[in-house]
Computed example of a mutant assay.
Amino acid sequence: MLSRRLFLKSSAIIGCSAAAHPLLSSIAFASAPGENRLVVIILRGAMDGIDVFQPYGDPELRKLRQKISLGPDQGAHDLDGFFALHPSLSSLMPLWKAGELGFAPAVSTPYRDKRSHFDGQDMLEAGTGTDLDVFQQRDGWLNRLLHNMPGAESETAYSVGTEQMRILAGDAPAKSWTPKINLKLGPQARMLLQHVYHDDPLFREGGLEGMEIASQSMDRIKEKKGPTRDARELARFSASRLNGDTRIATFSLSGWDTHARQSVTIDGALMSLADAILTMREDLGKNWSKTTILAMTEFGRTARENGSGGTDHGTGGAMLVAGGAVRGGQALGKWPGLGESDLYAGRDLMPVTDIRAYAAWALHDLFGTERGALESSVFPGLDMGENPRILA
């Protein structure tokens, strides 16, 4: 029988692909009073914010990276004279110019140093301040929000897997939904499962056969629909619910764990994110003007690229905000710098703002949730600070 220790050891060997495994992808919904809508997209695998929103105006960037994140000279789109948008998000530039896209650099949860995808994602979705709180707090911050919203109801659903998204887990009633999409296994996930099944005669042959079927099925989907079909399906279904009674939606997108050849491997994840946002914008119609999207990841990546042209697990990351209700066209917060003395532990982007504070102010401005409830119940122990005014 496969032990947890062997599974975790195998995960580390393969490169943490299990943390962003497609079987864990899920989607959840909640209804709430009022007309404002909130969409939270969890980017599983630790998105490199320095690559997505490239601080090319920082003179230290080129000392840390020669193959990635080099700004407008390499095809990125200038945003404000200091930051540039990754070329694979070029389709979102009209939103930036329309004030419907923004971002917050140098953000993180209070999670530090251990840099585990599993723990980082748990803390992000639980909304807690320490590792210990994650184990004690079994529900998620969106579910706790509902308890502070009179008349709110919740229902949850899953895209591919059988596990509920923790961010909306809790006492609220749950339902399920499975979109008509096929299982997708990336190279790292296949290697992980082959390693796990290798010594198990019961599952080895069946597992290998199943992976081959999944691979052939996904090849046909790519030929017909393109590589970002899953993201569009999740966004389209979310929009259909948000056009009804639903006011809060959350789903996850994987593919952000870019340890090697990042200039190539990050493209698919970025295009999926862009497609999800644009699909939602199109399908929401007039309700887009009342919608706020927060795209959040468990932590950032190292400031310095590694020998494989990728980046390793870090600390400070970035949060993307979009929607017709946001005050876009700007970078929120401060930039800490990339000098050696500016980095966290001499290796990572220094977090400047607790990402929970941005989420809390969004909830305050969207739904009128009281600050006291946000700081004590929804995000225990959080100091929200001053209002960054995410909304227009």
Rank of each mutant, 00 (worst) to 15 (best):
M1T: 14
R4N: 13
L6H: 14
F7K: 12
I14P: 03
C16S: 13
C16Q: 14
A18F: 12
A19W: 08
A19N: 14
A19C: 13
S26Q: 02
A30N: 03
P33Y: 01
G34P: 12
E35N: 13
R37S: 07
R37T: 05
L38H: 01
V39A: 01
I42F: 10
A46K: 05
G49R: 05
I50S: 04
P59L: 07
K63H: 14
L64P: 05
R65F: 14
Q66D: 04
K67D: 13
I68R: 01
L70E: 02
H77T: 04
H77P: 02
L79N: 01
L79W: 09
F83A: 00
L89T: 01
W96I: 08
G102C: 03
G102N: 10
F103C: 01
V107E: 00
D113W: 07
H117N: 13
E125F: 05
T128W: 09
T128A: 03
T128Q: 05
G129C: 05
L132S: 12
R138N: 13
D139T: 06
L142P: 01
L142I: 06
R144D: 00
L145N: 01
L146S: 02
G151F: 09
E153Y: 14
E153P: 10
S154I: 00
V160G: 03
E163D: 15
E163I: 15
M165I: 02
A172E: 04
K175R: 10
K180V: 14
K180D: 15
L185F: 11
P187C: 11
R190Y: 08
M191H: 15
M191K: 14
L193A: 10
L193P: 08
V196L: 14
R204H: 11
R204M: 07
E205N: 15
G206Y: 09
M211H: 09
M211W: 10
M211T: 12
Q216D: 13
K222G: 11
E223K: 12
T228M: 15
D230G: 08
F237S: 10
S238V: 04
R241W: 12
L242W: 06
L242N: 05
T246C: 11
T250K: 02
A260N: 08
R261S: 12
S263V: 13
A269V: 13
A274Y: 14
I277R: 01
I277H: 00
L278A: 10
K290C: 09
I293K: 04
I293G: 02
L294R: 06
M296H: 00
M296G: 03
F299S: 04
F299I: 04
A318K: 00
V321H: 03
V326W: 03
V326N: 03
V326F: 08
G333S: 10
K334N: 13
W335M: 04
P336L: 11
L343C: 02
L343T: 05
Y344C: 10
T353E: 10
T353C: 11
D354K: 08
A362E: 10
D365R: 02
L366G: 03
L366T: 04
F367S: 07
F367Y: 12
P380S: 07
L382M: 07
E386Y: 10
P388F: 15
